[in-house]
Each structure stands twice: as C-alpha cells, then as structure tokens.
C-alpha cells in the first residue's frame, strides 16, 4: 500500500506560485526590446510609404488630376503626367505575364506531377536559382540575345496578324523586302520578354508549392476511380491549387510592375499612351525614375516621387489581393509566397 504523507510536519509550507501574464525580470527586457525592434521597423518601413505620400502632395496639388491623365512628361514646358508611363508599365507587365503565366503553370505542373522523383529536388533548386539570378543578367540576356529574335517575331506577327490592333506598328511597311530592324527593337514586347524571365520562377515556385500540398487521399481517390494522370491534374490538382495559381500569378505581376533595370536597358523612352506593344519605344514608371532622377530639380523630384508613390500603391494593391487570394484558398494557408 502506498500512502501519501499529507501532513508531514517537517515539510516546508507549500506556497502557491504567483501566476501572472506580466513579464518580469529578463522576460520584461526581452519583450520590451523585441517590441522596440518591431516599432523601429514599423517606423522605417511605414516611414517610406508615409514619406512618399507626403512628398507627392505638392505635385498632386500643382497638377491636380491631370497628373494621372496627362501623357507627356515635359518638365521644361511644365507639363507633367504619368498616364503614358503607367500604360507602358502595365503593358510591359501584361506582356511579361502573357509569357510567364503559361510557362510557370506548365513547369510547376511538370515538377510536381511529371518529373521523376530523382530529379525533382534538382528542378526545385533550379527554379529557386533562377529566381536568385540578378535582374541585370536577365537584362543583358534580353538585350543581346533575345532582342534580335524578338524583333524578328514582331515582324512576323505584324505581317500575318497586323489586323490585330495591338500588333500594328506605325510607320513601317510589313511587306517591304528589307525590314527596318530599328522600328521593331526596344519595344514593350522585348522588355516584357526579359521581365517574364524574372517573374516566371517566382510564380512557378508558389504554384509548385501549392500543388505539392494536394491531399494524397484525393489524388488516390481520383486514381482509384480510373482517372488518368491528366484526369488527376484536372479534377484534383488544379481545383485545389486554384488559389495558388492566381496568387502566384499576381505576385509575379507585382514584381513585373516594379522591375527597373532590365526595362531601362531594353526600351527606348517614349511618352505616349500606346497599346501597340510591338512598336519601338515604351516607358515604365521605374524606368522613368531611373533615367530622370539625376538632373531633376526639386519640383521634378517631387513629381518622380509622386510617380513612385502611384507605382507603390498599384503594386501594393496587387500584392495584397494576391495574399488575400492565397490565404483564403483551401491550399494556400501555409504557403509562403
């Protein structure tokens, strides 16, 4: 028999421990230091946004709504507007997504569904490596290797699909025996291809991660019902990963909108609203900043900051939407984008 010495007179009096959620001693220091770091980061990062907004005020006050609708950028004539560069930014990003989205989706599907298990890890690393390659390298690739071929493709598209509005190239004759190369290079189309290389690995990584989280039970259920591999993908993997597909694409879009250096290397600046992406001359907000900041007067600098602020708001909206979609979807709850 066991007996508990409940009333041992020699035992010290048991005192109930004081339980409190308030940190004491080293805990208090830890909590407060951590809070201070968090606050300083909040100030730094939030400060950038607030600062941009504050700097943009004089410009927006001076030019009013026409800042967003005017397409010319002529500081010497006191005409400043970002409609042209905004359209350019969007069209470059759309061209980039036109190439990047299907390729990212297909390669993510290949890695998660078709690749032999032995090389799967290698392929995942390759995609990560592709994401880590500096954008200037893709700029070099786009400028020296891609652009001649892209120009040729543009010429071909113009000849055969010239009736499509945005394949039209003004000031050129598609049927001329000698084609004027200079009218086909440095376009939004060429820049978009280089940017596509940059956003592709990002979108692919998010999609692959979401696909790999497909519940094996559902996969096996589809197989047990007699589905082919494509049947499994179509009925299980793609519906499950829909949030990741949309979210990854939008994250890529956010990156494409803000891409600078490859765009600066490739395009030749043009300030007008145009949707003919094959035509030479385009511009984007970030390229505008990179080219113009050097010899800008304070007023122009404010205008550039305002343009940067608008760009930031657009990317912020796109990224937030992407995060919401990824988090809401069934699959993306713990995918880190």
């Amino acid at each position: 028999m066991t007996s508990l010495p409940l009333a041992d007179p020699s035992a010290p009096e048991a005192q109930p421990r004081r339980i409190s959620r308030r940190p004491t001693g080293s805990d208090a220091i830890f909590v407060n230091v951590a809070r201070a770091i968090g606050a300083s980061v909040l100030v730094i990062t939030g400060g950038v946004g607030v600062f941009l907004a504050w700097q943009a005020v004089p410009t927006l006050r001076r030019y009013g709504f026409s800042f967003l609708t005017e397409q010319r950028w002529q500081p010497e004539a006191d005409i400043i507007g970002i409609a042209g560069v905004l359209v350019g930014t969007v069209s470059i990003a759309l061209v980039a997504m036109f190439f990047a989205f299907p390729l990212a989706l297909l390669s993510a599907l290949y890695i998660s569904e078709y690749a032999p298990a032995k090389i799967k890890g290698l392929l995942v690393s390759a995609v990560d490596l592709m994401a880590a390659i500096p954008s200037i390298v893709y700029g070099l690739w786009g400028f020296f290797l891609m652009m001649p071929h892209a120009a040729e493709l543009a010429w071909w598209l113009q000849r055969h699909f010239g009736w499509v509005p945005f394949f039209k190239i003004r000031g050129t004759d598609a049927d001329s025996p000698v084609w004027d190369t200079s009218r086909y290079v440095s376009s939004a189309f060429c820049a978009g291809i280089a940017v596509a290389m940059m956003v592709l690995p990002m979108a692919c990584a998010v999609m692959r991660q979401v696909f790999s989280q497909t519940p094996p039970g559902e996969r096996e259920a589809a197989l047990a019902l007699g589905a082919t591999k494509w049947g499994v993908i179509r009925s299980v993997v793609l519906p499950f990963g829909r949030g990741g597909i949309i979210g990854g694409t939008m994250l890529g879009l956010g990156r494409a909108l803000g891409e600078t250096i490859a765009v600066v290397l490739i395009i030749s600046p043009a300030f007008e609203i145009k949707w003919n992406v094959l035509e030479t001359g385009a511009n984007s907000v970030s390229a505008l900043i990179a080219v113009q900041f050097g010899d800008a007067t304070p007023a122009q600098l404010s205008a550039l900051l305002a343009a940067g602020f608008v760009l930031f708001l657009i990317t912020l909206a796109v990224n937030t939407l992407a995060a919401v979609i990824v988090n809401r979807s069934r699959s993306g709850a713990d995918a880190d984008a």
């Binding site: 980061v41 909040l42 990062t45 939030g46 950038v48 946004g49 600062f51 941009l52 700097q55 956010g254 909108l257 803000g258 891409e259 600078t260 970030s286 900043i289 990179a290 900041f293 600098l301 550039l304 900051l305 940067g308 602020f309 760009l311 930031f312 990317t315 912020l316 796109v318 990224n319 937030t320 995060a323």
Partner: peptide, 21 residues
C-alpha cells in the same frame, strides 16, 4: 501587416527614398 505591405515596395522606390532623405 505593414512589413508584408512593404515587400511590395519596388526597389527603385527604396532607392529614391534614400536619395531624397
């Protein structure tokens, strides 16, 4: 929330921020 929002900051705008300040 703020940190996640600021990952959207285009790098050129970060440069412009430091340049101005």
């Amino acid at each position: 929330t703020v940190v996640e929002a600021m990952t959207a900051l285009p790098s050129i705008v970060a440069g412009l921020f430091i340049y101005t300040t």
